[in-house]
Design a protein around this nucleic acid. Sequence first.
DNA 1: ACTTCTAAGGTCAAAGTAGGTCAAAGAATT
DNA 2: AATTCTTTGACCTACTTTGACCTTAGAAGT
Lengths: 175, 175
Amino acid sequence: MRLSDSIESFIKQMIGAAEDTEEEGIELRRNELAEYFHCAPSQINYVLSTRFTPEHGYMIESRRGGGGCIRIVHVETSPTDHLDYLIREKVGTSLTEPEARLLLRQLTVSNAISATDATLIAAALSPQSLAVPIPEELKNALRAKIMRTMLLTVVRRIQSERRGPTAMIIRERKV
Amino acid sequence: MRLSDSIESFIKQMIGAAEDTEEEGIELRRNELAEYFHCAPSQINYVLSTRFTPEHGYMIESRRGGGGCIRIVHVETSPTDHLDYLIREKVGTSLTEPEARLLLRQLTVSNAISATDATLIAAALSPQSLAVPIPEELKNALRAKIMRTMLLTVVRRIQSERRGPTAMIIRERKV
DNA sequence: ACTTCTAAGGTCAAAGTAGGTCAAAGAATT
DNA sequence: AATTCTTTGACCTACTTTGACCTTAGAAGT
């Protein structure tokens, strides 16, 4: 079995275990994990960037420096869900601006997302936002990625609101 | 947990407690605090300069010499003024991801934008969103443009909410 | 008043810690 | 054989912690 697959399933186990608790997602130390698997730390990045992408429903944030860490959150959309369908089938890997607008309209009228969220996403995908000298194809790829990541964020928020309005984790206080 | 975070939340607790009384802000002794946390005194300065800046809504004065001390005051600025200021002065034409996150944090703690908006914007600017093969400089230019467009969208929404059917909320200014 | 002492706080650079990127080499698939 | 996927390592960026050295305010001694 490939190393990457082992690391992938290890991380998925961690996430599975964390889902039973109240915690949202998991935190891991890149160097620890690399040492555990006797591999280069950058191998962890490879696994993350190939198997824990927004396309797979994962959101990642990380911090460098002392006490740094990598946080992974899995956002699950039920496969029967209309929103899930739109995200998977319509976003794809490339989105023109008109396509993006149409999709946002559909999402809004079907009440999948709020008009407010739609407006913000539209702003991020607008020509103004993407006014840098790169080929249009790359912009369309960008639109798809940004759209996907933002929709995932919205879904995550909506789900956590549904679970419990008081799920606000700020920071642990150790003094 | 990082030492700096502990110190930060300790200070914020002090400020929170002081806000219940009539006192304006708090006073602390640098050396005392450093001893309490078993760290170098300059660590306190580090925390102050990274987490209690004017951008975060804090004003700091200090006195040296015998009986010297550090005074920290949390100032409530008008959210829209602060937002305007940060858009004009801090966004610029290029934003690294850490810079963007810092800016969003500042906007959030000073109540210029909601945590929800901040999260959505952060999603748009995340490495995952911008995972296309273009040089980092272009990504930074993109971040700045996306940030500006989205913040302006937020401002416009806030302003139209104020004009709209919802009663005007006049906030008292404590300065 | 003037100088000196001492008790604060301030600055800055270096070391320490931790994650990110990229390209080249190696392995597996087609 | 060609292509694609995996693994590794050299180098980069970001955040934290510490310590040496500097500045200032007030107190004490003259």
